[in-house]
């Protein structure tokens, strides 16, 4: 039973990692507290639902459409809101307030179009795989495999391309990045597109398993943010460790106490990290001034 909860926790952790990467790509590069992540996550799930249910696309095609559309939506938030604010040298607080605005508009728009009730993609009994005492459902298997493939692809992309170095450089200092001859606008656009892809991947994989409503985004944003902070801001690999840790911890809370305690434990862990290891697991001590 204990092992079953650990496996469930790992799979949930992979999903948290995907969302945390979606949030961290933008936060680490631009320092914008990208609250609109919650809305993009919801949008991804609903596009998936619309393509699969209404347009009757095959599942894989609906998934790809959701990834593309969310990437485009993410790019549009950058072009229409964040870029003009960046050009005007607005503060990051202003960008965060604008982000809340984007989230509110998008979520209300989705609720208006699709209604507030929970939508389910597939309510048939799912196939299960049994490994000794451990049972994994087909959607869980898909979540783990697709999630791990996407994360590995991102690592290869950021680790073996100059683009990865550029993203880290932009995250360090935009002026030094630009004076070295690199285009801030283009780099930010690609980062926003990647963020959209990872958010949509997380939301589609989750929505296929447990369905969706227009308000699923905020808890995901909170988990993503906590995963990023406990892993250590500024590092993408930290999101994975943070996400897995959070997923396993929440599963153990369910195992030991009840699901009602999940959020309380999430924030307790966040507070403990902020007090005792604010730089996160992967963070290191640095010059303070």
């Amino acid at each position: 039973m204990f092992l079953q909860f650990i496996i469930n926790g790992i799979i949930t952790g992979v999903l948290y990692s995907l969302s945390a990467i979606g949030f961290a790509l933008v936060y680490n590069t631009t320092r914008i507290f990208h609250i609109a992540v919650a809305a993009l996550y919801v949008a991804g799930a609903y596009i998936f639902y619309f393509a699969f249910h209404t347009l009757e696309f095959p599942l894989w095609a609906a998934g790809i459409l959701a990834l593309l559309f969310t990437a485009i939506l993410s790019i549009l938030t950058e072009i229409s809101v964040y870029r003009p604010l960046y050009r005007k040298k607005s503060s990051l607080n202003t960008a965060m307030i604008a982000s809340i605005g984007i989230m509110t508009i998008l979520i209300n728009g989705i609720a208006l179009l699709f209604g507030n009730e929970t939508k389910v993609l597939d309510n048939s009994i799912q196939q299960v795989f049994t490994f000794g005492e451990i049972i994994v459902t087909l959607p869980q298997m898909g979540q783990a495999i697709i999630g791990i493939i996407l994360i590995a692809a991102l690592f290869a992309f950021l680790g073996f391309s100059n683009f990865g170095l550029e993203v880290r450089a932009l995250c360090n200092d935009a002026a030094l990045f630009e004076i070295s001859g690199f285009n801030v606008k283009t780099t930010r656009l690609i980062v926003f597109a990647l963020s959209g892809v990872f958010l949509a991947a997380g939301s589609c994989l989750t929505a296929y398993d447990i369905g969706m409503d227009p308000h699923i985004g905020m808890p995901v944003l909170i988990n993503a943010m906590v995963a990023m902070i406990i892993g250590g801001t500024g590092r993408i690999r930290a999101c994975i460790v943070g996400g897995l840790l959070l997923g396993i911890l929440q599963a153990l809370v369910v195992f030991q106490f009840s699901a009602n305690w999940q959020n309380a434990i999430t924030f307790l862990v966040l507070l403990l990290f902020l007090f005792f290891k604010p730089q996160g697991i992967f963070g290191s001590k640095k010059r303070l001034v």
Partner: peptide, 17 residues
Amino acid sequence: LPHLTLLDNMKLCSNDT
């Protein structure tokens, strides 16, 4: 750039894209 290595800093200065 504070969180890049010296070598990466040097490489980025090469204004080669």
